[in-house]
Each structure stands twice: as structure tokens, then as C-alpha cells.
Design a protein around this nucleic acid. Structure first.
Lengths: 361, 361
DNA sequence: GTTAGCACTCTCTGTGTGTGAGTGCTAACA
DNA sequence: TGTTAGCACTCACACACAGAGAGTGCTAAC
């Protein structure tokens, strides 16, 4: 694979990313001045096709990059990025200042509310890229999740809110409806008791003595204790499933590869399915290059996504122990360079923001 | 408007709802046996067109109901429903047992978690109807929202979670990051102090003495008090904005009226815009018939939705004081009868479920 | 008042043709 | 030996056109 072929392949891919139209030899001869005639490029393209990097949709169309072509291109891109990250060569143009500021705002305006931060991050990424963004909550992957702390708070005369935090730092609210809800003072007293008896323990291992203490404490609120136990069981059973936030699904409608409404609908449904998404993110963990993972086209398992690529990175919270994913899903014909830039930008911002707060507060 | 014209109009609308194709006189003569020939029906249709209830897309197509036609049809439907709700005439067929069971499950499985309940409700409705479902959180509409209660709970060494409940029963979680977070006991103690000083009061009206007490209580956790105050200001400023849950937006893609991807995208964006949706729901409050409101086609203000109708009902919580909306958004050519049935079914279920719990616990 | 018959209109579908973009091959050139 | 010009060939796509089908409105008869 000589350097000229690489240049031509890059030209084809870049042009195809921009236009979504099969690109012909004449186009390349004109657009990327390599000092070669279309005939020469034609010969090279014939070779590239033989090597499997490009394919012709039909005899008299131009060529379109294959998954293998994108893979070659992306591997080169990521390699360059590691090797020459200091010298800013034009193959990896930095993010525009506006884009940076935009991302920064999305992160910093929501620094205290992780759920909003993740949702806004997804929105910002999809806005900048016009692709689909997926952000997963950072959780510490552990088995045998337990209740770490829990608290009751009154909402109205008939409702108390139970907030639970698990050992994997999953936070959940549960509205419980009662004939007469305890007031704030009572809630806080009950919270203290509950933390003593439940926190850090296996639910099945509650001693009879502890049970008695709980029943006594909850004497004034029949049924409430049972409701709480039911909720806690549910929380523990569900385990450390991170929430997943998506943004820009509507962008599917702007992509010519999903002109077919059936295909668009299939992708839609796949992306709405949280479990599928989770698998996708995990799949992308083969991690050849630290920091960024790219899954191209049919490399992923979902048929609905066989025309899509996933570019993924990881962010860290809680001193690096909890990790979450940030991913961009676009057509295989996506702007990988931009996607990588944006992901690294946003991951840096999130990592720094959370770290800075740790340091300065 | 004699009874025969009404019958014919109903036939046209029902057929058009089912097929999305302009319906001609011969179709009607065959499908709804009125004992009339196509020629007679043709004459009647000519009259109906003159009256504005149907329109011909072009000279040799069939007729399509106009907004006015749907309006006439819907008003009649709702009227019948009130008048003869006991006798089950076939113009308002009841929900199928399976559908009822499905809705029931969606409600009862999530009775203790309002946010899940609303989300699942939206999902269930969109699943049953293949339209878009919108469900808004029930809030008590009041001005000058205040903090009703609030509580701190530790998440990890660097994070505490602040849960706030406002006078309008808005519940929010806020993760706060610190150099060293207080433990459960300290959190509960701080919670007690905060509730004494903040609950029910205007933030601006905190006395110097109260401020001093707070500062003393928070002495061990620099910055935390300031962070909490900032969060509380935000919560109060945001006011009683209900959250809105949507389901089935993807169903747009199955509707022939949105074959044009531009239109689909526009609708998509309109529905994603929470404020638009809120306005839509409020707009639908003209309330001719108690319980159900229907906004048809261009009756609503959004151009993106001029081919859509909105069928809405209201549910109640907290002894009837807080109200939320449940709405179905579909094409003007939607199955109004089904929509009304489902909305009444689900609203009843939610109302009853919440009331029952009040009674029995 | 209802219906049968008929001429007319308009969309939609299928067919055929021409055009343009692109390729591969060959031969000439540096 | 690599590069280029030229040319014949292929194939999708756009366009025009004819025919079919569905539906209407009108008229005249029942």
C-alpha cells in the first residue's frame, strides 16, 4: 500500500463523507490536486477495489468506501493522533473555539446535577455533529450491590419520597403513598433508624432484633416499612444498571442513508432499546487505542446498525473508579475526525470539571 | 344536515381513517350498505363538499374530510358519549380486555414511582394507538413557589445528594461535589437544620440570625452551604414547571402523511420542544365537553402540527388539587373513538389507583 | 327522489429513449 | 515503466408519453 494509494483512498473517503455520492476518478483528479490524470487515478482505484478498500455500487457509478476502507482510514487517523498529537497537522484539525465554548457551557452549567449534565452533553454533541449521541451514567462495576444510604422526605400529606443510594452510587427516588405521611422531623428520625439497620447490609441478613427495632420505629406508620422493604429489594435486584441518555435521534431523518422509512424506523427502535445500546457500548470496548474506540459498520452485532459506526470514549468520576461512556453513532460515512475531536474534547471537559471540583472545594 | 348526510360523512371519515386514501362514492355505496347507489351518494357528497365538511384533493380523486368535517364528527362522538354512556352503542366500542389489562399493568406496576408511572403510561398509550403520547406531571398550579422540604444524603466521599421538594410538589435531585462529604449522620443533622431554616420561607427573607445558625451548623463543610443556596435559588426560580414525558415519537415514521422527511423532522423537533408541548396542552383547555378536549388540525397554533390532532384528558392526584394532562397526538386522520376510549380508560385507572391507595393504606 | 349511463378529468404506472457519469482497455508518449 | 489521451461500453436516472383506472358531474329515464 504505497503512499499515493493512501492519499487517493483518503480523498475518496473525505469526498464521500461530504457528499454521500459515489466518487469517480475525475472528481478526485480535480478536487485533490495530486498532479495525476483521471486515468492514472482510475488504475489506482482499480487496485484499491481489488484490495477491498472501496467498492463500486454498479459498473458506471463511482466508488464508495467499504467497511475495510473506513477501518484503514480510522486506524491511520487514530495512529496519527497518538504519534503527532503535539504538532497540529491538518489531518486532525482542532475543534473550533465556538464548539469548545459550547461544550464547555453544556458541562459547566450543569456541573452539580449529573443527570442534567449527561443529558445536556448528549444534546450538545448531537447538535455539533448532527449525529446521534449516547451518554451512559458512570457507575462502579461491582457485583452484589447493597444499599449504601437512604432517606425519607415528605412531599405532601399522602406522599413521602424515598431516596436510595447504592454501593455502586445509583441514586433513585421512589414516591410512596400513604394515608398520612410523616412530617419532616419524623422522616429524618426514621431515616436515621433505617440507615443504621439497612445501610451496607444484605437485605436477607437483617436480624430479628433489627427487625424488631424497625417495627417499633415505624409503629406510627402502618404499611410504610413493608413498602420500603419492597422498594429496597427492587433496587438491589436491579443492580448497577447505568442510565443511558441519548440525543439527536431525530438526526436520522437528515441522513440520506436512511431515506427508506423502514430502515429509519428500525434504527430508531434499536436506539430506543436501552439494553441494545448498553451492549453496543460494551462491545466497543476492544480498545486497540487507549481513549477512543471505533466500531465500523458490520463490525457491530446489530443488523439495524450495519450502516452505522460508533465512536466511543470513556469518562471518569469519583477519582477514576467509576467510568461512563460517551459515544457518537452516525452512518459509516461519518466524519470520524470531527467525532474523535469532539469526544476527546468533551471527555476532557467532564474529567477536568469533576476533578477540579474535587481539588478546589 | 339530514341524517343521511351524517351517515355518509361518518362513512367517509371512518374509511379515510382506516385507509388514508381519498374515498369515492362507489366505495361508500359498497362498504356501508345504506341502500343507495353511488350516484345518489355522489349528489350527497357534492352537498357535503359545498358545506365544507369534505374536500376533493383533485378533480378525479375521491373526497377527504376537512378539519370542519372532523370537528363535526368529533363533536357528535363526544356528545353521544355523554348522552348515552350507559347503553353501549357501537359508535363507541369499549376497549378490548387485553388493552385494559395492558393499561392496568402499566399503571399498577409503577404505582410507587410517579416518574416511571408517567413514562410507562406514555409508552403504553403510544403502543396501543400507534400515535404519539404526551403525559405531563401533575402539579398544583401556584405562583411564588417555595421550598417545602429538603434533605441531604451521602453518595460517596466526595458527593452528597440534595433532594428538594417544593410547595408545588416538584421533586429534584442535585449532586453536590465536595472535597469531603459529610456522612449519613451529619447529613441528617444538617437536613434537620435546613428544614427549620429554609422550609416554607422566602429565600430572600432569611434573617441574619438564621444565617448565623446555618453557618455554624455547616462550619465543618466549607462551600457546601453556598452550593445549597445556589441550588435552592435555581429550584425556586424554575417554579412549578411540570416535567413532560412523551412516548412513541417514532410512530411518526409509520404515518403516510409524514412520508416527506422534512415534515417528519419538523414535527419531531416541535415535539421535542418541551415549551411548545406545554403550550399545546394548555391550548387544548377550551373544554367544551368535560373530561376530553380535542384540537383538530389547524385549530392549534403550531404550523408543524397543522396536520395533527390532539386529544387530551386530565388526571388528578393529591385529592384532586394537582392536575396533569394525558394527550394523544396523531394525524387529523386519527381514530378519535379509540383515542377517547383509551384516554378515559387510563385516566380512570390513574385516578382510581391513586385514590385507592389513599383510602386503603 | 333515485338511478343508470356517459363523457370528461386527472393521477398513476409502465415503457422506452436519451443523456451523462464513470469505467476499463488500448495505444501512444516521456 | 509509469502516465496519459482516447474511445467504446455500461448503467442509472430523468423525461416524455400512452394507457389504465378511479372518480366526478351531468343528463335523462324510472
Amino acid at each position: 500500500m504505497d503512499v499515493r494509494k493512501v492519499r487517493i483512498l483518503e480523498c475518496i473517503i473525505n469526498d464521500y463523507i461530504a457528499t454521500a455520492e459515489p466518487v469517480g476518478s475525475r472528481t478526485i483528479a480535480k478536487k485533490c490536486d495530486l498532479g495525476l490524470s483521471s486515468a492514472t487515478i482510475r488504475n489506482e482505484m482499480s487496485d484499491l477495489e481489488e484490495m477491498g478498500y472501496i467498492v463500486a455500487p454498479h459498473a458506471s457509478a463511482g466508488r464508495v468506501p467499504s467497511d475495510a476502507g473506513y477501518r484503514f482510514f480510522v486506524d491511520r487517523l487514530l495512529h496519527q493522533r497518538i504519534g503527532g498529537s503535539t504538532k497540529s497537522d491538518k489531518s486532525a484539525p482542532a475543534l473550533s473555539p465556538e464548539a469548545l465554548a459550547f461544550l464547555e457551557a453544556a458541562v459547566f452549567n450543569n456541573i452539580n446535577q449529573i443527570d442534567y449534565l449527561l443529558k445536556e452533553t448528549a444534546k450538545a454533541i448531537s447538535f455539533l455533529t448532527n449525529y446521534i449521541a449516547v451518554v451512559s451514567e458512570a457507575v462502579t462495576p461491582i457485583k452484589g450491590e447493597r444499599i449504601k444510604s437512604l432517606v425519607l422526605i415528605p412531599v405532601d400529606e399522602n406522599t413521602v419520597l424515598l431516596t436510595t443510594v447504592t454501593s455502586a452510587k445509583n441514586i433513585k427516588n421512589h414516591s410512596l403513598r400513604l394515608a398520612a405521611a410523616p412530617d419532616v422531623d419524623a422522616c429524618l428520625t426514621l431515616s436515621r433508624v433505617m440507615n443504621i439497620e439497612f445501610a451496607g447490609k444484605e437485605l436477607g441478613a437483617i436480624t430479628p432484633a433489627a427487625k424488631k427495632r424497625l417495627i417499633t420505629a415505624f409503629a406510627a406508620y402502618p404499611h410504610l416499612l413493608q413498602m420500603i422493604v419492597t422498594v429496597l429489594e427492587g433496587v438491589v435486584a436491579e443492580g448497577g444498571k447505568p442510565r443511558i441518555y441519548t440525543g439527536g435521534i431525530k438526526n436520522i431523518l437528515t441522513l440520506p442513508e436512511f431515506d427508506d422509512k423502514g430502515k429509519a424506523l428500525a434504527l430508531f427502535e434499536a436506539i430506543e432499546e436501552q439494553d441494545y445500546l448498553m451492549d453496543l457500548l460494551n462491545e466497543a470496548d476492544s480498545g486497540k487505542v487507549p481513549g477512543i474506540n471505533v466500531v465500523i459498520g458490520a463490525e457491530n452485532q446489530l443488523v439495524e446498525l450495519k450502516n452505522c459506526s460508533i465512536v466511543k470514549t470513556t469518562y471518569h468520576t469519583g477519582g477514576g473508579r467509576a467510568t461512563g461512556d460517551i459515544a457518537i453513532i452516525g452512518p459509516t460515512r461519518m466524519d470520524y475526525s470531527q467525532a474523535v475531536n469532539i469526544l476527546q474534547g468533551i471527555a476532557d471537559k467532564i474529567n477536568n470539571a469533576l476533578k477540579n471540583i474535587n481539588d478546589s472545594t
